[in-house]
């Protein structure tokens, strides 16, 4: 019996939305604003990239199961 991340639709939708959010589209056409010396859009992208990273690691560990694992 194999379980895999793509069988968990809510998880995969969540991953897809976070991927879309990594591109700093809300900042298009606006002036560059700095926060702690770095552009705000960079903080935005870094935050969602970190979220994607965490979600990916979580999916690997939580949703990937294989009964033949230790064979």
């Amino acid at each position: 019996m194999i379980d895999e991340p793509r069988r968990h639709r809510r998880y995969m939708v969540c991953v897809g939305l976070v991927i879309l959010a990594t591109a700093p589209t809300p900042f298009i056409g606006r002036d560059t604003v700095l926060m702690m010396g770095l552009p705000l859009w960079l903080w935005w992208s870094f935050g969602f990239t970190a979220a994607l990273s965490g979600l990916t690691a979580y999916g690997m560990l939580r949703f990937w199961r294989d009964d033949s694992d230790e064979s």
């Binding site: 990594t22 992208s45 994607l52």
Partner: peptide
């Protein structure tokens, strides 16, 4: 900085098929 995102994406890209392929 998009390179940070897509390097994470390479690992996320394993999610859809690697469990079955590995098995």
């Amino acid at each position: 900085f998009m390179s940070v995102t897509f390097m994470v994406g390479i690992i996320a890209g394993f999610l859809p098929f690697v469990p079955r392929l590995a098995a």
